[in-house]
Amino acid sequence: MTNDYQRAGSLRTSGSGAPELRTPQKLMVFVLSMALFGLANIILEIIPDVTIGPVDISVAYFVFVPLAMVALFSPFWAALGAPLGEIVFVDLLMGDFSGLSEVEGYLQMFLALYIAGSLIRNPRSRTQIWLGAILVVVIDKFLSAIVDLAKVWLALEDPEYVEGLPESILFLEGIGFGVDIVMSGILFGAIPAMWLIPALHGKIEPLLGMRPRVPGEPIPGQAPRTGWFVAVAVLLSIAAAFFAFIEAWDLNVGEWEPDFLDQFGMNFLWVSVGAIVVVLGLAYLAYRAGRKRDGESQARLQAEADEAVALAERERREESIHS
């Protein structure tokens, strides 16, 4: 294999160099991610769920599909597209759109995928793929589990709560979380991804006119590891949780205690809505602030990147000599 990344000169434009995404490429990643995850979801929708006893042994989603997208392409655009695919193909099309909780689901899934995708530095590393797959499910499901557990907690506050329910919710929630990790995270996440991502690496990127990711090289559109991003992520998760709460609020407070609700119900709703607005506003401000400071770190990242590319290329050359 010859190496021609050094090529430069009196050209008018050059495709090699820092992997920067152009608008149509972002669009392609977004659309591809949306279409594939949408297809995966519609297949799951048609397959009936298996219920063993009270525990729903179902696959929440084919995690390996969006994981492959975020591992191979820009995590940001792939993570943005995938949950939209679910909404468009399944929720809107099948008329299964449940309003607020869709927003919650979108934010959770986006965060989970974005973070997992940014974590996978080397698409051929099995360890990183395993971590990524489990992380997606953990981030996504952990947030909803917190919401569900909070319901139980709220119900316990009330002495007249219904017999047997909190234990069952706690129990089922725990089992559900475990089942999700095993089914979605491992069986339909890590294991298929371990095979699929390396198999696609280097093959699918040229189809979209992109250069495959080189291990170690900075990923276009990856999650920056700076304080502001963590802040934005945390705030977004809180916002997502609040969306869920608006729905959950009704379940745990409203249903069991109509009197309480009559007094505080409406205010409760508005407090939640207000909280979402405030939190989203803070997230936006943190994002803006982070963007400004981004410039300085960019140069440092660039230097690191060049080094990594050179290293990776050297490895590749050596590999081809040996083989």
């Binding site: 669009l27 659309v31 279409a35 699929l196």
Partner: peptide, 27 residues
């Protein structure tokens, strides 16, 4: 389940090829 998962390998590549044309045409 295995067949459903294996099917995604060709689907990824075929869809990527189709999406390329679509996005070019959009552009």
């Amino acid at each position: 389940a295995k067949m459903a998962i294996l099917s995604f390998y060709p689907i990824f590549l075929n869809t990527a090829k189709n999406v390329r044309t679509t996005v070019e045409a959009l552009e």
